[in-house]
């Protein structure tokens, strides 16, 4: 019983890890204050669920979840290329609401508020992932793989260009680099991993509806990224473990879920607020949010 609970938590941590690392790439390394990350997560979840439900093999849907999200990420970056700082934040926030409205209202496709049920557990051809322990294994591999790729990107010369854009975009352009294109890539990659995380979520819970992808869901992710520290992957990993586990004791105390939900949000929002007020660098960050 306890081991099932721990496996469940670890799976959630794995999914959050991918989500937060990918936001770190856009926000921490490129300086794109993307408040629309949840929208990519949603797009990935719906893409994967809809494809598998219509008979497409899991592994294809899984990759398509990332690719479709990346495409949306590219389009979002492309259309908001000229926006900076708080204007970009609001435009991306708006993107979350638009995707949410579509998930809720395009009932022919998404089944609206009722959501999509019966999303099959992954079937990898030779092996079928039925048990949660095995699913954890799959999530872990994906998370490690995501970490390695994002780490490779940020450590490469391309990653230095991203950081340079975060520090002073105009100066990068004056050095002759097309920053619009680079930002498009950054957001597309970020969206790709968010989409993959969405797919992992959909096939784990086997049910999705719009309420899992509301605007409020950005708060835990944003808290993790900022508390872990801007431009620190290590900090993000650590913060994901700590912050996902933090509200768990509430369950043991025996609060009903109608209390646990809001209290969880309160904890995350309060932590985010306090870190912004007193330690805007986060715990592992070297870079201060400008």
């Amino acid at each position: 019983m306890l081991s099932a609970y721990i496996i469940h938590l670890l799976i959630l941590i794995g999914i959050y890890l991918i989500l937060c690392l990918s936001l770190q790439l856009a926000l921490g390394y490129t300086g794109l204050l993307n408040l629309g990350h949840i929208a990519f997560y949603a797009i990935g979840a719906y893409t994967s669920a809809l494809l598998t439900l219509s008979g497409v093999p899991f592994i294809v849907s899984f990759l398509m979840a990332g690719i479709v999200s990346a495409l949306f990420g590219y389009l979002l970056a492309f259309s908001t290329n000229k926006l900076k700082g708080d204007y970009l934040a609001l435009a991306t926030l708006g993107f979350t609401f638009v995707i949410y409205a579509i998930a809720l209202n395009w009932t022919d496709l998404t089944n609206g508020a009722l959501g999509l049920a019966g999303i099959p557990k992954p079937d990898l051809g030779i092996l079928q992932i039925k048990s949660n322990a095995f699913y954890l294994f799959f999530v872990s591999i994906t998370a490690v793989f995501s970490y390695l790729i994002i780490n490779k990107i940020v450590k490469s010369p391309f990653g230095k260009v991203l950081e340079a854009i975060r520090d002073d975009e105009l100066a990068v352009r004056i050095l002759g680099k097309n920053t619009f294109k680079i930002k498009n890539y950054s957001l597309a990659v970020s969206a790709f991993f968010a989409g993959i995380a969405g797919s992992l979520y959909a096939h784990y819970i086997t049910f999705i509806d719009p309420s899992s992808f509301g605007f409020m869901q950005i708060i835990p992710i944003l808290s993790i990224v900022i508390i872990g520290g801007i431009a620190s992957l290590r900090g993000t990993v650590l913060a994901t473990f700590v912050l996902v586990l933090l509200p768990e004791p509430l369950r043991f105390i025996g609060f009903p879920s109608s209390v646990v939900g809001p209290v969880r949000q309160i904890i995350y929002a309060l932590m985010l607020l306090l870190i912004l007020m007193y330690r805007p660098k986060g715990f592992y960050g070297k870079v201060s949010l400008e």
């Binding site: 700082g85 708060i219 944003l222 808290s223 995350y268 929002a269 985010l272 607020l273 912004l276 949010l289």
Partner: peptide
């Protein structure tokens, strides 16, 4: 102003 905006979003949710 960006930091203040994030803080205000956190406040809203809080």
């Amino acid at each position: 102003s960006v930091i203040l905006l994030i803080a205000s979003v956190a406040l809203l949710i809080l």
